[in-house]
């Protein structure tokens, strides 16, 4: 067992961890933060997306012992207009992929703010990103939604992106 300080949503937790425990399982089973979901446990669905120091990652493929001292944000620590936008645009149905979609979208918006390109970015050297529908859809493709709420999710993200300075949609 390894003692690690997990900093989640601004709170530090000292936990004893079997090094096999994924960040996802540590959050869900040890800290009781079940808002982060397990959909495939293989990095293939995005339901477990959390933010680490602002970057979105798949918590199922992260060993928790690797993330001591980092600032981890889960859906329980998110209070953002995007959540309301998801409800308004109906960017959800069963709700199981939703926390991952929202955390992923927040990480994605930060990436766009930093000018990071995507696989569909026409002019790679262009330092600014325009979050067209195609850009949002490509950048969010790591988050599966079997209910098929993709249109609403894209709308919610573009609505919030457009409302912020520095990012055009």
């Amino acid at each position: 067992m390894i003692e690690v300080e997990l900093r989640v949503n601004g709170t530090a937790h000292r936990v004893e961890l079997d090094p096999r425990v994924s960040l996802l399982d540590a959050l869900r089973e040890q800290l009781g933060l079940t808002g982060t979901k397990k959909g495939c446990n293989q990095g293939a669905c995005g339901a477990c997306t959390v933010l680490v120091d602002g970057d979105r990652i798949a918590a199922c493929l992260a060993l928790a012992v690797q993330y001591g001292g980092r600032e981890i944000t889960t859906i329980e620590g998110v209070a953002h207009p995007l959540q309301r936008a998801f409800v308004r645009t109906d960017g959800l149905q069963c709700g199981y992929c939703t926390p991952g979609q929202i955390c992923s979208a927040l990480g994605m918006l930060a990436e766009a703010d930093a000018g990071m390109p995507s696989a569909v970015t026409e002019h790679l050297a262009e330092p600014r990103v325009t979050l067209s529908s195609a850009e949002v859809r490509e950048r969010m493709s790591g988050n599966l939604c079997r209910c098929g709420a993709y249109n609403g999710i894209t709308d919610a993200i573009r609505e919030v992106a457009g409302a912020r300075p520095g990012v055009s949609s």
């Binding site: 970057d55 979105r56 798949a58 493929l61 992923s104 390109p117 995507s118 696989a119 969010m140």
Partner: peptide, 21 residues
Amino acid sequence: ARFPVLAQALLSGASGQLRNM
């Protein structure tokens, strides 16, 4: 700017989450 093939290859791999890891 100088090695677009590399940037494109990286960006076409996996997902945003996995590329961050």
